[in-house]
Each structure stands twice: as C-alpha cells, then as structure tokens.
Amino acid sequence: MTDVVISPFSNSDIRDWPLNHYADLVGLLLASDPEIRVSVIGTSTQKLRAHEIVRAHPAPRVANDCGRLSWPEVVDLIKASACVISNNSGVGHLSGHLGVPTVCVFGGSHQRHEWRPLGASVMLVSRVIGCSPCQLDHVSGSPYGKACLREIAPETVSDAAVRVMARAASKDERNVWMEGDAAAVERADEPN
C-alpha cells in the first residue's frame, strides 16, 4: 500500500485550497494507483469539513482521520507516509523537515519565498497571479474569492504528488533530485 496523507486545513482560511479540489484530488490519486490509500488529517473541529473531501470515495481507501490521532501519532503517520499533501501549514513544514515527499499547495496571500516549507523533498505548487501577495488572513477579504488557490487544478497537484513519490521511489536518498527538474540548476550533494 502507498499511504498518502492529506492535511487540508491551516490556521487561516485564506491559505486553504478549496475542499472540492481536495475531493477531486483524492479521486485522481486513487485512479493513478490502485495501491494508494489516503488519510485526511486534522483536528476534531475540522472533521465536518473533511467529510466533504472523503464523501465520494471508498472508505477502505480513504479515511477521515480528523480528531482520531494524537500529535505523536500524526508525526508517526507522516514519517511512514509515501507523500504528504498540505497547504501552507504546520504539517507541510513538518513533512518537509522530516524529508518526506511533500506537495505544498501554496496560496497567494503570503510570499512563498518567506513561508514555504523547506526541504529538497518538497514540491511547491502555487499560482502566478497579479494580486499576490495580499497578506490577507481571511477569505472574506479576498476580492477575487481566493483565485490564487481556486485556480490551481487538482490535476496539477495530483501530477506533482505522483512525481514526488516517483522520485522518492527511484532514488533512495529523498533529497536528491533527478536531472531535468530544472534546466539551469543542479542539486549539490556535498557542501560547496
């Protein structure tokens, strides 16, 4: 089994990718690999929102684990997972810190150069949009209905997740990226 952890909630709704996109993403992930199982994590108060993500998907492969795990259990789950998909939030930072393959769906409210999760195992998905960074905390303040996240397609995130897992599988060292990731740069394994 390939365990994918989705952490769809941050402390600020302006940073959260829409729930329907997460729901579609889960469908794409399940279709991409019959071995994939998904765990949606969050607090007990986020469980109702997580229902919207898992509802359309088979229970044996997609679990709503919001409120079911203690923090140490969350850490263990992340360590053991094949991929973590998150917003700009604490779980994304933890996952990158632990070197776990991570896809971070990063909204336009904050500057990704300042707040992105660090780590060579992190793949950052964000939108080029003229109104970013707006520095807003709440969706209610967004004059464009959080277009910076709304316009990120589930297919893009799913592709990134598949890619980040494939790289981790093809290289034992998770922080080494294969050639062709970016044309102009190469990964240095040894100190400069």
């Binding site: 990704r112 660090l118 780590g119 060579a120 992190v122 793949m123 950052l124 998905v125 964000s126 939108r127 080029v128 949009i129 003229g130 109104c131 004059p143 464009y144 209905g145 277009a147 316009e151 990120i152 397609a153 893009t156 990134a160 990226w177 990731d181 970016a182 740069v185 190469e186 990964r187 240095a188 400069n192």
Partner: peptide
C-alpha cells in the same frame, strides 16, 4: 458576484510547480 481573478496581471497566469535546489558554485 466576485470577479474570477484580478483584471490586471504582470505575467500570464499559470500554476507553477517548484522545487528547492541547492547550488554548486
């Protein structure tokens, strides 16, 4: 009604996927 997106742009909108690269100098 909320506009889909700003009516201005500095470059064509797109979704970018990035990774962190260390540099060897």
């Amino acid at each position: 009604p909320i506009p889909d997106r700003p009516d201005y742009q500095f470059e064509p909108p797109r979704t970018r996927v990035e990774v962190e690269m260390a540099m060897q100098c």
